[in-house]
Write a protein that binds this DNA or RNA. Structure first.
Length: 260
DNA sequence: ACGAGTACCTGGCAGC
DNA sequence: TGCTGCCAGGTACTCG
């Protein structure tokens, strides 16, 4: 599922290819994709000149010169392609002769104009060990649920949160406030590190969550995954404990030997 | 304010 | 084979 590195990978392709170009037409997918059709987004995009593709957390933002911004969230199954047919097109826009399509088979994606409240991103300078410490210090919720809360930290989903906790040697079910200052410092570094490695690798393309960029290219981050979706820990080779729906209603995985 | 739970949605797969 | 039913995921919502 697209988390920060996957969305950033998409953004870079689109920025390189379409910045400065004009959106000649826009079309919505079937009405069943929308509770309310994103009319404001259509108005901003149609005939507009693309100033830039930006990103905030897992949100992809199209900035149109002199008009405003349109926000895309890929949900868990969202994919952006250039051309390419599917029965699951939520949204499409034409740039010159090319059709940029947003496919959304599980319909968890969003198109709109409002960006929700989001915390700092681990790659921001505002994200420090001190920030994370203050965030976790008094919380009883599982640390994994907290670092996946986009209002607190923007960009981590299940894969990268799982991997960051593994790198920091902290079990996902630990209460936020149970982490020592040293563990919080390791976790802050791990969050930053795992996302920058993900971006560098062009995202993670796991078997069941086949992320591809708009040109159809897979990422390489799956090579660096140590626990998520694995039976054996990539660090020590011991068995990975998988639990379903246990933390924040989500599946979790950790290595009981590497993580305390 | 916080934490827990649930709805949303459908492709894929386990189990019958 | 064909069916049923569960499950994955992120976000937005409710409830206590």
């Amino acid at each position: 599922m697209p988390e920060l590195p996957e969305v950033e990978t998409v953004r870079r392709v689109l920025q390189e290819r379409y910045a400065g170009k004009t959106v000649t037409a826009v079309a919505l997918g079937k009405p069943t994709f929308y509770r309310a059709p994103p009319l404001a987004a259509i108005k901003i995009l149609t005939g507009g000149v693309i100033a830039a593709f930006r990103r905030r957390g897992k949100y992809l933002i199209v900035v149109i010169e002199g008009r405003g911004e349109v926000i895309f969230h890929l949900g868990m199954s969202g994919r952006i392609t250039i051309g390419g047919e599917s029965p699951h097109v939520r949204f499409q826009m034409w740039i010159g002769t090319e059709a940029l399509r947003f496919h959304d088979s599980r319909r968890f994606g969003r198109v709109g104009c409002l960006l929700p409240d989001l915390g700092p991103e681990p790659l921001d300078t505002a994200f420090t060990a001190d920030y994370l410490w203050k965030l976790l210090r008094k919380r009883t919720a599982p640390v994994k649920a907290l670092i996946m809360d986009q209002k607190l930290i923007a960009g981590l989903g299940n894969i990268y949160a799982t991997e960051a906790l593994h790198a920091a040697k902290v079990r996902p079910g630990r209460a936020g406030k149970s982490l020592s200052r040293a563990e919080v410092e390791k976790l802050a570094v791990a969050c930053r590190d795992i996302l920058s490695r993900g971006v560098e690798a062009g995202g993670a393309t796991l078997d069941d969550e086949a992320f591809l960029d708009p040109l159809g290219r897979p990422g390489r981050m799956q090579m660096g995954v140590m626990v998520y979706g694995r039976e054996k820990c990539g660090t020590c080779g011991g068995p990975v404990i998988g639990t379903r729906k246990s933390i924040g209603g989500r599946a979790s995985a950790y290595c009981p030997s590497c993580q305390l």
